[in-house]
Design a protein around this nucleic acid. Sequence first.
DNA 1: AAGTATTTTAGAATAATTCTAATTTATGTT
DNA 2: AACATAAATTAGAATTATTCTAAAATACTT
Lengths: 138, 138
Amino acid sequence: MTPSPKTTKAVFDRLRAAGLRPTRQRLALAKLLFAQGPRHITAEALFNEAKARRINVSLATIYNALHDFTESGLLREITVDANQSYFDTNISAHHHFYFEKSGRLQDVPADEIHITQLPTPPKGGTISRVDVVIRVAD
Amino acid sequence: MTPSPKTTKAVFDRLRAAGLRPTRQRLALAKLLFAQGPRHITAEALFNEAKARRINVSLATIYNALHDFTESGLLREITVDANQSYFDTNISAHHHFYFEKSGRLQDVPADEIHITQLPTPPKGGTISRVDVVIRVAD
DNA sequence: AAGTATTTTAGAATAATTCTAATTTATGTT
DNA sequence: AACATAAATTAGAATTATTCTAAAATACTT
């Protein structure tokens, strides 16, 4: 079964719109990342998923792609675990539950957290993002 | 100039109270960490600081101490940078500014951020902590 | 002072990530 | 369609932060 042309086309256009060359491996990875609903994934996990589907991509390319995607706004990097980077396919404003035991992440829609006061950043600085992580002891 | 006995004694007692044996190296490190005001420090940075003061401590001990201190509540680990752990000597409730360019952290007192609504964690989970990181583009 | 558990240590090991330099590929231009 | 060029991919080496190992040193109890 060949992949749906519509999906391929959509992903292709999405890469283009982001200013990224739609190469074979970027297309394949983007499809893995964006075909399903929102996900939080590590480089290693994406690498294994690609391997499982017989997609030939080197680990270096996985890292390159994840960073390229992040820089061009297709992904968002989340840092909750000191020694592994998670990448979030949900780029709209939202926050996270972090399950300490399992290390799993879960989205919290932005409107479920109300922040009614924030400090002003020091002279010259601008707030680029406010990340809320709710740590859950499970 | 020998260190103030008062400081030494205070740190000694603090380790004891935390259930940690006040060994030579833990005492020295605790003094570095707690003598001054609140700080955010990495293992490597503490190691260098110790070296600069001719305190003989192995890197493994630095890591052991930081983790022991964290587990017994004398420190708090902060994860904002994907590949370096910061340890915060301020263990009271508070949040952080994170300066993206420099990688520096700055405390934000708890009462400067008002959170008026939080979601309920999934069945069985309990909120152990809510971390707010205000990312500042400087 | 002796005995035992805990801590420290050097150095090896591991894990995640980045780098290097060579090859391949995408794309704009003839 | 072939060509030139810049960008992307790759294998494997290198780097970085951290943990592990097993032996030696130390703290604390008796």
